[in-house]
Nucleic acid binder design. Sequence first.
DNA 1: TCATTGATTTATGCATTCAAAATGGTATGG
DNA 2: CCATACCATTTTGAATGCATAAATCAATGA
Lengths: 233, 233
Amino acid sequence: MTNEISMTQAAENSIAPPLHDEILAGIREMIFTGALIGGQRVPEKMICEQLSISRTPLREALKVLASEGLLELLPNRGARVSRLTAAEVDEMFPVMGALEGLAGEIACQRISDDGIDEIRALHYQMAAHHKRREFSEYFGLNQQIHENIMAATGNATLAIMYASLAARIRMARYRANFSQSRWDQAMAEHDEILSALTERDGPRLTRVLSAHLKNTCETVKKVIFNAEAEEAP
Amino acid sequence: MTNEISMTQAAENSIAPPLHDEILAGIREMIFTGALIGGQRVPEKMICEQLSISRTPLREALKVLASEGLLELLPNRGARVSRLTAAEVDEMFPVMGALEGLAGEIACQRISDDGIDEIRALHYQMAAHHKRREFSEYFGLNQQIHENIMAATGNATLAIMYASLAARIRMARYRANFSQSRWDQAMAEHDEILSALTERDGPRLTRVLSAHLKNTCETVKKVIFNAEAEEAP
DNA sequence: TCATTGATTTATGCATTCAAAATGGTATGG
DNA sequence: CCATACCATTTTGAATGCATAAATCAATGA
């Protein structure tokens, strides 16, 4: 949860700079784009130069990211990027399942028609990228769809909890590529998700989200094993 | 999540000082004991003196606590203690319900007999404090029981997520006192919880935990309204 | 050749410092 | 009397400085 009160009117053009959040976003980005790799130490000096900041606000951000599980703090040895393990995925799966199940039910009740249309638009964009084998673009839209479903619940607490788990799962993304068959399957699952949402069928949405999550977690675990096999030959 | 790798052997007697965590714990304590009151600004200087630290590590802790929702960051105005609102409780209720439901099922499957005995011991201690109307002691044991159930799942991710929500709920504790009748009811619910756990009846445990949570949330909301009525007469 | 020791360098953790913003209080004018 | 403007004080946010722990690397000896 980023608990920062936005300023009263956020001065029209003089952008209100929540510098602290910028840094958080920057480091997160580095982690998700693979600029910072799991298991590696976080080079404070280098990142300070890259973001043109001093170590003080950087280190504040590192503590926050550690509390989210993206980094680990090593006493007197700074921070290192967490490496998602299969065991952690197994732990996260039921928790994410419970949250998504809840979200599926609530979203079907509360989402507006416009909200569904928006997700549909994202879905077809994503399908197009899938067809063109543009993985990064696909991936971004996939994330947006799941975020939109969470947002549609109108429950910020739920959305934030889920996001924090999803972020940790996402860390495995750059360790290896998904198989084509899994990618096709995921796309088919998303067809079902859109369908259930369109029909506002809460129980069905919950079911298909759960199946999708299960497959995603299985895939992530494979990715983890493959990456480990590659690294330690 | 406190993501700190404990040192290899934590030097036998020369206590390994995770100073950062000490500060976190200290401020959390101030919040839960009412030394820091919801809505109030957090006086950095005072807390630094109290904990004999400088502002640098303190401010690191403040950012973490804000990310957990216990504090809010006001741009250029520091941090203030969050004030739990009824709307937030309404958001948190289904999420905590989903997590507790999951935990109930898993705990019944995985908890050891010793684990049940331990909870039973806590339960009877708690009952004794209830009989003696010792609210603080009751409250602490109540928290321990819920924590033990979560720990019994063996799922750290689940336990941490739940703990972070429970902590926010706990913030309302010092705003007003629970009614005697509600307290008696809660104790009766805990009898049911212990019973379901003893029988390892997962579905039943999930049901009674959910009912208990519902009542707890209702009570917290009442406490919030009462406190608000008192404050703005 | 390899492991071990010790000196050197680097990085970390925290305190301190400094500029800018917010707060408080007084004076001024309506 | 109240509202506003102005200045002094305090507080915040971030940079810098410093003591200590860790990492690096060269030298030594087996």
